[in-house]
């Protein structure tokens, strides 16, 4: 992201910026508001806004700018429709992990995975957000803390709680 022009109006810089931030923003919005398709729409709208206002937003402010806009859009949509966290068709199991196993084991695992996904969907919002950013997007606690402007310690506590909650939900399979 070392762009000498320091402006999001530069198409090259904008593309670069989009490619390095869109994916995580999409995940972040999805975990926060529960709907992946909607998250993708919000990402699109936020970046269009950034482009339209590029003259006013220098590159080093652009990240917090799109995150703020996206979060606000998400909140205003969520206010109108209470979305339950949707995991069907959005979160899947990596294919490579189920090969080379006996069919019985695959079945059991499938059952377990469904239960796990259900339990994650039922987590309290903040716990789920932190848990998924860490597990699916492989973000460090520090990175997650920066996204939501809280301390690393707070993230660690949420993560710990998320695991305790999941353990309770899943029971002994």
């Amino acid at each position: 992201m070392s762009d000498s022009k320091n402006s999001t109006c530069d198409e090259q810089a904008f593309n670069q910026f989009f490619k390095s931030h869109a994916k995580l923003l999409r995940s972040y919005l999805y975990y926060k508001f529960g709907d992946l398709d909607q998250a993708e729409d919000i990402v699109q709208d936020s970046f269009i806004k950034l482009w339209n206002n590029c003259a006013k937003v220098p590159l080093d402010k652009a990240k917090s700018y799109v995150y703020t806009i996206a979060t606000n859009l998400g909140i205003s949509i969520a206010r109108h429709q209470q979305v339950k966290f949707k995991h069907q068709n959005y979160i899947t199991q990596r294919k490579s992990d189920v090969t080379n196993e006996s069919p019985e084991f695959v079945m059991l695992e499938k059952e377990y995975m469904e239960k796990l996904k259900k339990a994650i969907a039922d987590l309290p919002d903040r716990q789920r957000e932190v848990f998924l950013l860490s597990r699916i997007d492989k973000k460090t606690y520090r990175e997650i803390a920066e996204l939501s402007n809280v301390s690393v310690k707070a993230i660690e506590k949420l993560m710990h709680k998320a695991l305790l909650t999941l353990r309770k939900k899943i029971g002994n399979i």
Binding site: A22, K23, Q44, I48, N52, M113, D137, R167
Partner: peptide, 30 residues
Amino acid sequence: HYAKIMAGADALELKTYDVDNALNNIKSNK
């Protein structure tokens, strides 16, 4: 139990995101 949760969680992935396609969408919507 925890090890299984973690193994399961780490095997999860999100529907893939076509970044280039999304960028094109923005370009045409700008």
